[in-house]
Design a protein around this nucleic acid. Structure first.
Lengths: 180, 180
DNA sequence: TCAAAAGTGTTGTGTAAGCGACAAAATTTG
DNA sequence: CAAATTTTGTCGCTTACACAACACTTTTGA
């Protein structure tokens, strides 16, 4: 939860930076994009960039957060009850996050996977913790477990994502409901 | 020739205002568009609007100038030599200016025709004066004559614009080259 | 290999734009 | 018609951004 300005100038400028970055990342590797490139495309002053982000790595970080969050939002809301179906959709959202990142940043996808993993696990953990009313350890196990399952599926599973998601949801559900 | 800022902030803001206005003019009559509407859609402060334009009438004026100029640019450049063909294209540009205005602002087109006439005649006069190296009276006669021809054609001519343009060009050419 | 060029991050100063408030039109409504 | 509401310009104050200059690091290429 960063400060979050309401000043329309700051909002516009931030968006200009993000838009410019998203354009550049389609064509270049992350490490061959300079802050100068970004600010020139965004038609803002370089000094202004540093008023919004400490460096391009923080920019990347916040873009990834935004992207992953946006995809998740299309699969589920944080207000839902925990359920097998919710878990299934959480898994499927991970699949789509990677797919969209892969097509969006073709060039540098591999260099981002580590960051994406951290982002996604972090967000999943927060959501689980929220739904389980603060059972921190459970939330950690679930988020890591789910992401691990995804990573395994990604390596070379031949099963359809849908089916695998179902299986994962069953397993994790059993974990949170050991009674049944 | 207004001051013309190079400050990217001012350029962006001006564009935001113009874009917002162009959106609104598609849906509302000019006189039911308030400055407040424009600034809200443009997400700028109302006070800022008045730093760029004295009122919405000046905004309209400069938008019309821009639009007519943009269309003309697609038909000819100010660097050309005066020729029958150039005159023909000048005439055709008038036709297109009215067509595009008509489809663009459906609602309030009629209220603008007077302003468009003044803009177009003014621009044509400047171009003619430039090409004729400052024969002011010739330039006036030519611009009024050409626009008058357009107005007449517009009322109810059944001739194709192309053909009429050819005719007009011949006539005006004879005027500037009385020797032939 | 080393000089030129390009990029980084920071700072001070000036300016464009945001914001709230205001009185004075202009519009709407009862 | 008058009261209520909206719109209009304007003003003082604050903030976000532009710009130029800076020392510094990294990349480039002759």
């Amino acid at each position: 939860m960063t400060t979050q300005t309401t000043d329309p100038r700051a909002i516009r400028t931030r968006q200009l930076i993000i838009d410019a970055f998203n354009q550049l990342i389609k064509m270049k590797n992350f490490d061959q994009i300079s802050v100068k490139d970004i600010t020139e495309l965004a038609t803002i002053n370089r000094a202004t960039f540093y008023a919004h982000f400490v460096d391009k790595y923080e920019l990347l970080d916040s873009v990834l957060t935004e992207q992953t969050g946006a995809v998740m939002k299309t699969y589920f809301t944080c207000q839902e009850q925990l359920s097998k179906d919710l878990m299934k959709r959480m898994f499927l959202s991970i699949v789509e996050i990677h797919e969209s990142m892969n097509t969006h940043c073709r060039r540098g996808y591999n260099t981002f996977t580590q960051m994406i993993e951290e982002k996604v696990k972090g967000q999943l953990e927060r959501i689980f913790a929220n739904l389980l009313h603060g059972q921190k350890l459970d939330a950690i196990v679930l988020s890591w477990g789910m992401y691990g399952a995804y990573a395994d599926w990604d390596i070379g599973s031949t099963v359809r994502a849908e089916d695998y998601a179902q299986e994962v949801a069953e397993k994790l559900w059993a974990f949170v409901q050991p009674s049944a």
